[in-house]
């Protein structure tokens, strides 16, 4: 079972410590929500799991499926089954959504033997009819218009369109573990429901999901198994669905106050 295990994770960005000892274990089939105020380290955690080179791990480990992923470059993590839905996805002018998805799928399917000569590479590409069918099914699930896929990736997309494309990619690649970094931010209620449906549709006994959010709103549509509160680069509280409701009602200050009271 592919589990994600984070132990004593310390991360710096430009020499500044952001994460100060995170411990987190997400088992397959579980949905964990990470909540926290701005600057608490939520996005740092997401980008560190994926392997962004700006985020330096100074201490601690991340294991996925029993493998030390900190030793793997980002593309290898992706092919091992990790997926990150970006808070701010990059635009790629001149590359259509369809070509991007197909190129990525083919890269994920390619056999990367160390001994095979380049010329002997087997054609493992997804057959076009199969690709077209898969894309049509996923578009339908996420209510994405056909015209969307001939546009350049995120180029001139609205905030909501970008988040939908992140969801579409997640479903096209079928990851074993998905990290969603504030995918719910800035969405109107219709888009939020589509995103929530996308997350619920991914939910399966062999898939783990880490849902990073600033607001409780998405948790009305997606029921997490656990809620963690992140403050100043640490998980300060863990609870069930009810913790999110409590945060919504009282704000993050009550956790902060508890935290400082505990330290005093």
């Amino acid at each position: 079972m592919p589990d994600l295990e984070i132990k004593d994770l310390h991360v710096e960005v430009d020499k500044k410590p952001i994460l100060n000892g995170i411990d987190l274990a997400v088992r397959s089939g579980e949905v964990h929500a990470i909540m926290g105020p701005n600057g608490s380290g939520k996005s740092t955690l997401a980008l560190t799991i994926m392997g962004h080179p700006r985020y330096k791990v100074t201490r601690g480990t991340i294991h996925f499926d029993g493998r030390d992923i900190l030793a793997m470059p980002v593309d290898e993590r992706a092919r091992a089954g990790l997926f990150l839905a970006f808070q701010y996805p990059a635009a790629i002018p001149g590359v259509s959504v369809a070509n991007f998805l197909r190129t990525a799928l083919n890269a994920r399917r390619a056999e990367r033997g160390t001994t095979a000569a380049a010329g002997e590479r087997k054609n493992t590409d997804i057959p076009i009819p199969q690709f077209v069918k898969l894309l049509a099914d996923k578009r339908k699930l996420l209510e994405i218009d056909e015209s969307f896929i001939t546009r350049s990736v995120n180029d001139g997309f609205s905030g909501g369109e970008k988040k939908r494309l992140e969801m579409l990619q997640m479903h096209m690649f079928g990851p074993k573990f998905a990290v969603l970094d504030e995918t719910d931010s800035g969405l109107d209620i219709d888009a939020l429901q589509v995103v929530a449906r996308g997350i619920e549709a991914l939910r399966a006994p062999d898939v783990g999901i880490l849902l990073i959010t600033h607001y409780e709103r998405i948790l009305r549509y997606v029921t997490p198994d656990y809620v963690h509160v992140l403050i100043e680069g640490r998980v300060v509280r863990t609870g069930g669905r009810e913790l999110a409701a409590e945060l919504e009602e009282k704000g993050y200050d009550f956790v902060r106050e508890e935290l400082y009271a505990g330290r005093a």
Partner: peptide, 16 residues
């Protein structure tokens, strides 16, 4: 670099 990271995060090795 941000575009490159985004594309690689979808499973493409650096060269691709």
């Amino acid at each position: 670099e941000e575009e490159l990271f985004y594309v690689m995060s979808r499973g493409m090795p650096r060269l691709e």
